[in-house]
Design a protein around this nucleic acid. Structure first.
Lengths: 185, 185
DNA sequence: AATTCTCTATCTATCGATAGATAGGCTTGA
DNA sequence: TCAAGCCTATCTATCGATAGATAGAGAATT
């Protein structure tokens, strides 16, 4: 993995998380790295390949951070809190929403493989939360709850950025942890 | 207000809600209406003007529908349910998220007036919910709750579309109405 | 006759993508 | 050991397509 390739991924992730897939161009990325746009095609044949690499890396990194945050937590509310914090960490200070959050919003405008990979990220998120909740709650309610939790976090990131108020994500996390405590009693 | 102008607004709203601001072009809109892209500039001098007109119309229409849905409801949970249904109606069957949902996600890539107007839509949403809740709950908690509700709805629309599962929005609405019932007791 | 609407024609800027070249490092086999 | 050949990373130059935007002519409506 070259430095340049990594720099391209970092730069592209940043830009896309702020402005969306279609607002980011190879030329812009190249300019910011002081290379030519043709050289970007050396690393990613098509723009879609860049997008796919981004989501792949993002998903892996998300679940790595999640596992770190979980540590040796045992009870359900603590685990869910760790999940929420993994999201909060992604936003913190950066004014960027989740990569898959913005790509999910653009779904119909993305190459189909890319939107597919984005929905897999969400599915994996929901499955993870569902799995944690299912020890305490019946599976049907747990599934709905898991969906609602991921949805609430994604929406809160977007609102936080649009209203430039990071506290909104904190409020959402409070609501979630309250719900989970009530449910798992 | 010409037919063509209205058709342009309808078409643009549809396309942007599916694919985002930067994925939609004047040429594409013109082609679909059987006119030339130069004619689109007759109605909207710049793309930003189209965006502003869209958000303005969308906001007005949203609060109109909301007022219809409220009817003569009195109690807090019923009003919040009506608010949620106003969102649900926007998604229903169309596989489109909220116009301001996608524009909010793209915030940093939008002309500044446009992103400002989008954040005003959200602020108006939160204020409305806050106002309803404040009769039952102390204002600080009501503010947080209002933010969480709008966030949860926005996130649920995005997830519903990305995972092609409209039931996710229903789950989110269930969670919200539960929270409100508990809170306003 | 004046206003409203759409057109043709065109501009500049940028898009993603490709071809072909080059400089320099690495590998490998005589 | 050293030359031949391949690999990496980048370049220049260009492609066709599309972007948003404009000026001004012509048609349609009132």
């Amino acid at each position: 993995m070259t430095d340049t390739r990594n720099d391209l991924l970092d730069l592209a992730e940043n830009s896309i998380r702020r402005r969306g897939y279609h607002a980011v161009s190879f030329r812009e990325l190249a300019d910011e790295l002081g290379i030519k746009s043709a050289s970007v095609h050396y690393y990613f044949r098509q723009k879609e390949d860049l997008g796919l690499a981004l989501v792949e890396r993002y998903t892996a990194s998300f679940f790595d951070t999640l596992n770190e945050n979980i540590g040796n937590a045992e009870d359900v509310p603590t685990k869910i809190e760790a999940f929420c914090k993994t999201y909060a960490f992604a936003l913190k200070g950066s004014e960027k929403i989740c990569l898959c959050g913005i790509l999910g919003a653009e779904t119909s405008g993305l190459p189909s493989q890319l939107s597919e990979q984005v929905s897999q990220f969400f599915q994996a998120n929901i499955d993870w939360v569902h799995n944690v909740l299912a020890t305490d709650v019946n599976t049907k309610a747990a599934r709905s709850m898991a969906q609602s939790i991921v949805a609430a976090l994604q929406g809160a990131m977007m609102l936080s950025v649009s209203l430039n108020d990071p506290q909104i994500l904190d409020s959402a996390i409070n609501t979630i942890t309250n719900d989970v405590e009530v449910l798992s009693q």
